[in-house]
């Protein structure tokens, strides 16, 4: 089982784009989601993603993602 397929499907349904997920475990709690998720806020001069791990920048919360996951 993929560690994040439901999460990524939920994010797609919530129209969240330009994100990154890095995880070593199945994402099924807010703590795991917050540790795994970043949003890309821009691109630097070398074309690299600029990421933010601040939930205030995300535009989505674990509660929203979890609710969407439960519909899948």
């Amino acid at each position: 089982m993929s560690l994040f397929s439901k999460v990524s499907q939920a994010l797609e349904n919530l129209k969240i784009t330009k994100y990154v997920i890095r995880t070593d475990t199945l994402i099924d709690t807010e703590e795991k989601f917050n540790n795994a998720f970043t949003i890309v806020t821009g691109v630097d001069a070398d074309g690299n993603s600029i990421e933010s791990s601040d939930p205030n920048d995300w535009g989505v919360t674990w509660s929203q993602v979890k609710a969407e996951m439960e519909k899948l």
């Binding site: 994040f4 784009t17 330009k18 994100y19 997920i21 890095r22 890309v40």
Partner: peptide, 11 residues
Amino acid sequence: TAQEHTNASWT
């Protein structure tokens, strides 16, 4: 580590 992203920038 598993990783996924959607970015048209190097990640």
